[in-house]
Amino acid sequence: MTAILSDRPIFTINAELAGILDLGATPYGHRRIIDILGGTVRGDKLTGRVLPGGADWQFIRADGAADIQARYTIETDAGARILVSSEGLRHGPKEVLDRVMRGETVDPALYYFRTVMRFETSDPAVAWMNRILAIARGQREARAVQLDVFEVL
Rank of each mutant, 00 (worst) to 15 (best):
M1V: 15
M1T: 13
A3F: 15
P9W: 06
N14C: 10
A15S: 11
A15W: 02
A18G: 12
A18P: 10
I20G: 00
L23G: 08
G24A: 06
G24I: 02
P27T: 01
H30V: 08
R31Y: 02
I33N: 08
I33K: 14
D35H: 10
G39R: 10
D44C: 00
R49E: 06
R49C: 07
R49T: 05
V50P: 01
G53E: 05
D56F: 01
I60Q: 06
A62I: 09
D63M: 00
A65N: 03
I68H: 01
T73L: 02
T73D: 10
I74C: 06
E75K: 12
T76W: 00
A78K: 00
I82Y: 04
L83G: 08
S85W: 03
E87P: 04
E87H: 13
L89H: 05
L89I: 07
E95V: 09
L97W: 04
D98F: 04
G103Q: 08
T105K: 06
D107I: 10
D107K: 14
P108Q: 15
Y111V: 11
Y111I: 08
R114F: 10
R114Q: 09
R114C: 11
T115V: 13
T115L: 04
T115H: 01
V116K: 15
V116H: 13
M117C: 13
F119L: 13
S122D: 11
D123E: 05
P124I: 12
A125C: 13
V126Q: 02
A127F: 05
A127D: 11
I132C: 09
A134F: 12
A134R: 07
Q139M: 12
E141A: 15
E141N: 15
E141P: 15
A142H: 15
R143G: 04
A144R: 14
V145K: 10
V145D: 08
Q146A: 11
Q146R: 14
Q146D: 12
D148S: 13
V149N: 05
